[in-house]
C-alpha cells in the first residue's frame, strides 16, 4: 500500500517539478515534449494501471489471510 502511495506521489507531483528540463526532450515520431506528455498522458496511464494492480494484489492478500468474502 505504501509503495502504491509512493508511486502515486512520484507521478502525481515529483515528476512534474522537472517539467522544464523534461520538455527539452522530444519523444521521437510522436513529437511530444516529454514534460508535457507526462502530465497529459504518462501519469494518467500509470494511475490506471496501478489501480488494477492494486485491486488484484489487495484481493490476493485478503484471500491469503482468510479475510476475503465468502461467495
Amino acid at each position: 500500500m505504501l509503495t502504491h502511495l509512493g508511486i502515486w506521489f512520484f507521478f502525481g507531483y515529483v515528476i512534474h517539478m522537472f517539467v522544464v528540463p523534461l520538455n527539452k526532450i522530444v519523444i521521437p515520431i510522436l513529437g511530444f515534449p516529454l514534460g508535457f506528455y507526462m502530465a497529459a498522458q504518462g501519469s494518467l496511464i500509470v494511475f490506471v494501471v496501478m489501480l488494477f494492480v492494486f485491486a488484484r494484489q489487495q484481493n490476493r492478500i485478503d484471500r491469503e489471510h482468510g479475510y476475503a468474502e465468502e461467495d
Binding site: H4, L5, F36, A39, A40, L44, F47, L51, F54
Partner: peptide, 16 residues
C-alpha cells in the same frame, strides 16, 4: 493539466 492530473490521481486515494 493540473486539473487533468488532479482529477485522475484522486481515484488512487479513493481505492487505497
Amino acid at each position: 493539466l493540473a486539473w487533468v492530473l488532479g482529477w485522475t490521481g484522486g481515484f488512487v486515494l479513493v481505492s487505497i
